[in-house]
């Protein structure tokens, strides 16, 4: 059905800019509703009236709102996010510095979550109602109920303070600072590429606990969804047919049933990946992880609006991009949605 496939793609191409426009509008409005006068933020509250008026003119605040919004959009689209008051660097440069650390954390957590969550979900579905199923369901339910920052704190208390199995908060031991030249910005990859195995080992030790905490949340979500998808498939008649034909149980489960849930499962994984970018805000605070989440919260507490809006926009765009990509995948790949 090439026609409807084309239709799906066209619909998606309309949604993408519209949603991005919505994101820009929301961040613009957030910047406008704040009670801090942006002019005073620039010139200080003791500036004489003429300085104040000139700054107001320079910032374009005398223009009508729609024109201001238009200026804001064109600035953002050409990559001008403004300067951070806190670090006095351009916001975009800051984000490029901090984002790889978050990406590294979220990626490792997702890999762990998928490696454990998918088999757990399949197992629970195959043995529906058994003790194993109940144990897995219970574990995922806890994952949906426990606050991520509490789990991080308890993890630090148990594995760092009591058992001394992992190093404390932070990304790397201070002694190893600046040994590896950043290429991708992801310490694990950079140190491995440059053959600095001692740094690599230290970085692995540091990332283990925060990635583990995040992985538990993605595991809970992925296992729960995998179980639900598999249960739906295992009820279908083609599964019975395959069994009656004498096919091995393993082949029925992994090749026939699992093959059919692959597309929705990829969507779930991508969504949980996007969710981890958000979950990292709290995790990074607990583990003093120098990523985008920590940058965002520190800027928030310092009322550094350019940095806050820039980081929100970037996380929002990544989140949105992943969301829409899944949507596209669904519409184009899965013939049942047409």
């Amino acid at each position: 059905m090439p026609r409807s496939r084309f239709g799906a793609l066209a619909g998606w191409l309309v949604t993408l800019p519209l949603t991005l426009f919505g994101l820009l509008l929301v961040t613009f409005l957030i910047g406008r509703v704040m009670p801090i006068d942006p002019v005073i933020a620039v010139v200080g509250d003791r500036a004489p009236a003429d300085v104040y008026a000139r700054a107001r003119l320079e910032l374009g605040l005398d223009r009508p709102l729609y024109e201001q919004f238009f200026r804001y959009c064109s600035a953002i689209l050409s990559g001008q996010f403004g300067r951070s008051v806190m670090t006095s660097r351009p916001v975009l440069e800051d984000i490029a510095r901090f984002f790889p650390a978050t990406l590294e954390l979220a990626t490792l957590a997702t890999i762990l979550g998928v490696a454990l969550g998918v088999p757990a979900g399949v197992l629970a579905a195959v043995r529906q109602g058994s003790k194993t199923d109940q144990a897995i369901r219970f574990l995922t339910l806890i994952g949906h109920s426990v606050p991520i920052f509490v789990l991080g704190l308890v993890g630090l208390l148990v594995f760092y303070a009591k058992l001394d199995l992992v190093p404390g908060p932070g990304r790397i031991n201070v002694a190893f600072d600046d040994i590896v030249t950043p290429v991708t910005g992801m310490l694990l990859i950079d140190s491995a590429l440059q053959g600095e195995w001692e740094v690599f080992r230290d970085a692995v030790g540091h990332i283990l606990l925060p990635a583990g905490v995040l992985a538990y949340f993605s595991l809970a979500y992925i296992a729960r969804m995998t179980r639900a998808f598999m249960l739906e498939q295992l009820r279908q008649e083609y599964v019975t047919t395959a069994r009656v034909k004498g096919m091995s149980e393993r082949r029925v489960i992994w090749r026939h049933a699992f093959g059919n849930i692959a597309v929705p499962l990829i969507t779930v994984i991508a969504l949980s990946y996007a969710g981890l970018l958000e979950g990292s805000v709290l995790t990074e605070t607990i583990f003093s992880w120098p990523g985008l989440g920590q940058y965002l919260t520190i800027s928030l507490l310092n009322a550094d609006m350019n940095a806050v809006l820039g980081a929100t926009l970037v996380v929002g765009a990544v989140y949105l991009g992943l969301n829409l990509l899944c949507d596209l995948l669904y519409r184009v790949v899965d013939p049942r949605t047409r």
């Binding site: 919505g22 994101l23 704040m34 805000v281």
Partner: peptide, 24 residues
Amino acid sequence: MRVTDIFMAFPRLILALAFVAALG
């Protein structure tokens, strides 16, 4: 539906953070 799409595509905590940053 388009408006709900836009709001649902937002990361919840981050949007909440940005709002609170603006409103106090």
